[in-house]
């Protein structure tokens, strides 16, 4: 039986790696991948807590998040593809038209 603290700690580590990836990387593809890490970190904690509390709710909630993540990845990569065709670049530094 894996202790619950280890599961939560692992989830937080994955989440933090994802957060760092989103904040520091400038490649859109990497940023999207880091976004998946964020979500999956949360999923680990949800599933682990569900197991710990002996309830199926955590796993069900994790499934919802996975479905959301799939949709998000589909739309997100389509946008990235469209952006690449337009700019020939994945760099977010050139993506500053919304600058005030």
């Amino acid at each position: 039986m894996i202790p619950i603290e280890a599961v939560i700690g692992f989830g937080l580590i994955v989440f933090t790696i994802g957060l760092a990836g989103v904040l520091v990387r400038k490649n859109l593809v990497i940023m999207l991948m880091s976004l998946e890490l964020l979500l999956n970190g949360v999923n680990i904690i949800l599933a682990g807590l569900g197991r710990h509390l002996n309830s199926p709710r955590g796993s069900i909630f994790a499934l919802f998040v996975i479905i959301n993540a799939v949709s998000e990845a589909a739309v997100g990569f389509a946008l990235v593809l469209a952006y690449f065709r337009h700019r020939k670049s994945y760099d977010t530094d050139s993506l500053n038209e919304l600058k005030g």
Partner: peptide, 14 residues
């Protein structure tokens, strides 16, 4: 206020 709007995604994410 426009200074706040850098246009960089990571700034907004931060």
């Amino acid at each position: 206020l426009r200074r706040l709007q850098t246009g960089f995604v990571y700034n907004y994410a931060l």
